[in-house]
Design a binder for these strands. Structure first.
Lengths: 169, 169
DNA sequence: CGAGAATAGTTACAAATGAAACCAATCGCA
DNA sequence: TGCGATTGGTTTCATTTGTAACTATTCTCG
C-alpha cells in the first residue's frame, strides 16, 4: 500500500477545495447513527429477534397505548410500508393483536399481546442502559450540550431540490 | 382517529417506565441522519445520478488522490462490498479509471477521469453549501458545541453483544 | 342519495444492502 | 523454493427498503 506518483489523474485541485469527508456533517451523522443504532439493534435482534422498525412500533404502543398503523407512522418517522411490515411481523410472532376499529373499518387498532408487553418490558431497560452508557462516556459539559445540539439540528430547515434548482450561470 | 378506551391491551405500565422514543438518542440520531443525508443525497442523485456510496468514493479520491478500494473502505466506514459496487458503477459511468497496480496485481488504483473530476468539482461546493445552510440555522453557542458533541459521541465506546450477554438473575 | 376524492393499509416489483462464499495474487516462513 | 495463510476484490444469495400501484372504506358535497 505504497503511494505512487500519479500518471495524470485529472486532479481538480484548483477549482474544488477538496472536501474533508471526516469533517462533513452529514457523513458524521450517518456513520454515528449507523454505529450506535447498529450496535443496539444487534443487541435486541439477537435476544428477541426484533428489528429496528419493530422495536419502534413497540415503543410507540408502550408509550401511547393502542394505536393505528398510521399513528405509528406519524410518530416514528417511518413510511407506511415499513410500518405495515413491522406490524405484520409482530403480529405473526404473536406480539401484537389487531382488533377492528368499530368506527372505521379500514383501521386496525394495535395492542400488545401478553408476550408483546413482556418483550417491551425487557427491551426498554436494555435500551435505556445502553443509552446511559453512551452518555456516561461524555463529560458533563458535552453531555449537557447534546440535547440542545440535537434539538437545533432537528429544527434546521433543509434544502429541497427546487431550492437549489438553478442559481448558477 | 378518535382515542377509544382499551379493552385490555396488556399494559406493561408498572414494570417498564415507558420510554419516550422522541428523546431516545439512537432514534434521534437515526432520524436526523436520514433527514439530512437524505436531503443532500436526493440533491445530487437528481443532478448527477450519484448515490451516497459513490459520492463518498469521489470525496476520498478528491481529497487523497488515486487510492485502492481497500483504502476507500477504511476511510469511509463502508464495507468492501458496498465500496466495490460503488466503484463499479462509477467506472461504468466513465467517472473513474482503474489502472493496474504494478507492485500488486490484486489491487487496482482508482483515479478520476476528466468527467469524474468535473462532477467532483461541482458536487463539493453544493455539499458545502447545504452544510453551511444547516449550520447557519444554529445559534453560535450551539454551533460551536456541535463539533465537540459529535467528536465525543464518535469516541464513545459501544456495548457489544457479550458486554451485556448476561448480568441478570 | 351518490359519484368522485381522499384515506387506511397491503401488495408487487425493483433497487440497495450485508453475510458468506469465492477467485486470484501475495506473503510468511519452514 | 513452495505450500498454507492472508489479503484485495468480486459474485451469489437472502433480506431490507422504497416507489408505485392496488383494494377497501370513508368522506365530501352537488
Amino acid at each position: 500500500m505504497k503511494p505512487i506518483a500519479s500518471p495524470d489523474p485529472h486532479l481538480p485541485e484548483s477549482c474544488a477545495p477538496s472536501l474533508d469527508l471526516e469533517r462533513f456533517l452529514p457523513y458524521r451523522l450517518s456513520v454515528l447513527s449507523e454505529r450506535i443504532s447498529g450496535a443496539i439493534a444487534r443487541l435486541y435482534q439477537e435476544r428477541f429477534d426484533l428489528t429496528i422498525p419493530e422495536w419502534r412500533v413497540l415503543a410507540i404502543i408502550g408509550r401511547f397505548g393502542p394505536v393505528t398503523a398510521t399513528e405509528v407512522g406519524q410518530r416514528t418517522a417511518m413510511d407506511k410500508v415499513r410500518v405495515s411490515r413491522a406490524i405484520a411481523r409482530l403480529v405473526e410472532h404473536g406480539r401484537l393483536a389487531q382488533s377492528e376499529d368499530a368506527t372505521d373499518r379500514r383501521r386496525k387498532r394495535l395492542a400488545f399481546t401478553r408476550a408483546g408487553a413482556a418483550i417491551y418490558a425487557e427491551v426498554v431497560p436494555l435500551a435505556r442502559a445502553v443509552e446511559a452508557d453512551v452518555l456516561a462516556s461524555l463529560d458533563p459539559a458535552t453531555r449537557s450540550a447534546l440535547d440542545a445540539v440535537l434539538t437545533a439540528l432537528e429544527a434546521a430547515p433543509l434544502p429541497t431540490a427546487q431550492d437549489r434548482a438553478d442559481h448558477s450561470p
